[in-house]
Amino acid sequence: MSERKIRVLIAKPGLDGHDRGAKVVARALRDAGMEVIYTGLRQTPEMIAEAALQEDVDVVGLSILSGAHMALVPRILDLLRANGLDDVLVFVGGIIPDDDMPALREMGVSGVYGPGASTEAIVEDIRTAMQAKFAQEPH
């Protein structure tokens, strides 16, 4: 069997037209040996859940700068679950006020990364979670 690759969907839900941060994260994950599916700007929650299903990703990273995270994230999580993707790791990056972080984690978001977060931290968090997940898969 060939090496099990970590597959990540990087998506930008909402209407803000700025994807520099998302691209920086996408490249950092690629440089860490992951396969990153990049879907571009202005994705609806439905588009994101559909892409996650078709691509069978292990991780979904959402970049949200518009301030609409408290509306978008629960919707995306619901759609992922409806698609049977309960075990997908979801993280959020962008401009998220500290006050909203507990609520996002409560919903099932694994990590929230503000503008100051390092891409190394994101890589490490994903690796740690995936090691645990892959260890449970049959070999």
Binding site: E3, R30, D31, V36, Y38, T39, G40, E46, M47
Partner: peptide, 21 residues
């Protein structure tokens, strides 16, 4: 895939949004 890291950025879906849904 990157020959150095084995990773990849797969961006073709960006051009295929008309097909979603």
């Amino acid at each position: 895939s990157s020959p150095f890291t084995g990773g990849a950025v797969l961006g073709d879906r960006v051009r295929m949004r008309d097909l979603s849904g």
